[in-house]
Design a protein around this nucleic acid. Structure first.
Length: 495
RNA sequence: GUCCCCAUCGUCUAGCCUGGCCUAGGACACCGGCCUUUCACGCCGGCAACAGGGGUUCAAAUCCCCUUGGGGACGCCA
């Protein structure tokens, strides 16, 4: 259905993700990249990465590097592009200027474009005037019909010029896989610039040249590009290129229903990683924004997503980014991690929090792994691990009311003293030993259930909630346990 | 302002193309309950939507029109 036959007759699906390296990869762009990736993978096509760095002021190599890093982390590998090569390179627009020059000259020669000598200031004035008069602020076409002599005179004088595309059609029909046919009237934009006075080409022009030369079959991009599309169609036609299939996917909105941006908080892929999201979870969640599985599954891994993805099931309406749901999904993925994998991923968050040093973790690897595992069910984010695992390392500075209540039970000091006595002679406490002790106290002191267990819990942790008691007791050093018990007994006595 | 797009629970969505199966299904969040020596996990249940108005039709969430609402684009940014 989405097969695309090129002039050469060969049938292939080729899509591209074309970010401009002006900062970190943002979720909105990542979702666009993801849909491209999913589509090409599901169609056994090629996924091309192209760097749109024609804005020399805002683009940088460092930013480019960050984008590669973010994409790799998310699991979006490209088949062709920087760092990868391919037969359609170069894949960085600043390295393609000679190509664009060739095509802008062709447009000029064929009469589809012309040199415009108007200064920025002039145009500014023109625009202001138009707005005042309530007219659409578009170029007057002043330089459209300059004679060859006039052009020569201006050029000889050294007046700088930009190149404008000559818009002759009144209507342009854009075909979109997701939205159907859309009719645009060209009077809303007029002759537009394709090359700046300094010779650098502009987006709407280069994107067409690149998509055509790179034989892109499907242009899958954000909705915000829809209104650029007629301009691009015009250029495709003027250059005699075949027009690709367009698929404009809906925007991602913030909780206030405005286009998702930095002001909504965490939106860069890097920030998600730092906050303790798993790339698999983010990948899964992003896929579900304006796309849904035919079988209505929500938890789908990469392969399942590739298998079931289809542009047909992409909806037309924008989606609000729901951080709560992402968190929930992240929790699911955390709980599904293989144990060693979980520990490896959680380690950086343990050291970053300053609660444990890398050295210490390496020395007591097995023990800390068990501790981590004991609190895993509580986590929605990897970054939450310190606040749960700290129970093993510190008594709380302040006791909460639940703890204070338990301290008042008359059975509590009895249990605590007995427990302390029992562990006194032991070298270490293991699982069976712990159970034995508890049973013994239960029998001898005739205390059971909550009265017994909650007493031990506050005695060894100072908290009314935490990991399972046997884990708490067996994973802590005996010295530490005794110290804590003493402190608690003393506190109760002092009450 | 002009042009374009969109419209089902608070949010993500299924259903819409190919009207009856919809008393509108699922998920997050929220609220109950169960499980449990705690927290959490898990399980069970509940709350909650077809924007409004006209058509078309025996029948409309589904098709058509208008209104309203929301979003995007109007750059020598991409």
């Amino acid at each position: 259905m989405y097969n695309f036959i090129h002039p050469g007759g060969k049938m292939s699906i080729r899509v591209r993700f074309a970010p401009s390296p002006t900062g970190h990869l943002h979720v909105g762009n990542a979702r666009t990249a993801l849909f491209n990736y999913l589509f090409s993978s599901s169609q056994k096509g090629q996924f091309i990465l192209r760097i749109e760095d024609t804005d020399l002021l805002r683009s940088s190599l460092e930013n480019e590097e960050m984008i590669y890093e973010d994409m790799r982390w998310l699991g979006l590998d490209w088949d062709e592009g920087p760092r990868k090569g391919g037969d359609y390179g170069p894949y960085r627009q600043t390295e393609r200027f000679d190509i664009y020059k060739k095509y802008s000259e062709k447009l000029l020669k064929d009469g589809n474009a012309y040199k415009c000598f108007c200064s920025k200031e002039e145009l500014e004035k023109e625009k202001e005037k138009a707005v005042k008069e309530g007219k659409p602020p578009r170029y007057s076409g002043k330089c459209r019909n300059l004679t060859a002599d006039e052009i020569k005179t201006l050029e000889d004088k050294g007046v700088e010029y930009s190149i404008r595309f000559k818009v002759n059609k009144e209507h342009i029909l854009v075909k979109d896989v997701i939205r159907g046919e859309i009719d645009f009237k060209t009077d809303s934009f007029g002759d537009f610039i394709i090359v700046r006075p300094d010779g650098t080409p502009i987006y709407n022009f280069v994107v067409v040249v690149d998509d055509a030369l790179m034989e892109i079959s499907h242009v899958i991009r954000g909705d915000d590009h829809l209104s650029n599309t007629p301009k691009q169609v015009l250029i495709f036609e003027a250059l005699g290129f075949e027009i690709p299939q367009f698929a404009h996917i809906p925007m991602i909105l913030g909780p206030d229903h405005a286009k998702l941006s930095k002001r909504h908080g965490v939106t860069s892929i890097k920030a998600f990683r730092q906050q303790g999201y798993l790339s698999e979870a983010l990948f899964n969640y992003l896929a579900l924004l304006s796309w849904s599985d035919e079988k209505e599954r929500e938890i789908l891994n990469k392969n399942e997503l590739i298998e079931s993805f289809s542009l047909k099931r992409v909806s037309k309406s924008a989606a609000v980014f729901d951080f709560e749901k992402l968190k929930w999904m992240n929790g699911i993925y955390i709980r599904n991690l293989e144990e060693n994998d979980f520990f490896e991923r959680v380690k950086p968050f343990l050291t970053d929090s300053g609660i444990l040093s890398e050295d210490y973790i390496n020395k007591h690897s097995e023990k800390i792994k068990k501790m981590s595992l004991s609190v895993r069910d509580n986590l929605d984010l990897l970054s939450e691990i310190p606040e749960y695992i700290k129970v093993y390392f510190h008594m709380p500075d302040e006791l909460d009311n639940n703890v204070k209540d338990i301290m008042k039970w008359e059975t509590t000091p009895v249990v605590l003293k007995a427990f302390k006595e029992e562990i006194e002679p032991l070298e270490k406490i293991d699982q069976p030993k712990y159970k034995e002790i508890v049973k013994k106290i239960q029998k001898e002191k005739k205390i059971k259930g909550k009265a017994l267990f909650m007493a031990i819990r506050i005695g060894v942790s100072g908290r009314a909630q935490g990991p399972e008691l046997d884990k708490l007791v067996t994973l802590m050093e005996k010295d530490e346990l005794q110290k804590r018990l003493e402190i608690m007994i003393e506190k109760i006595g002092g009450n």
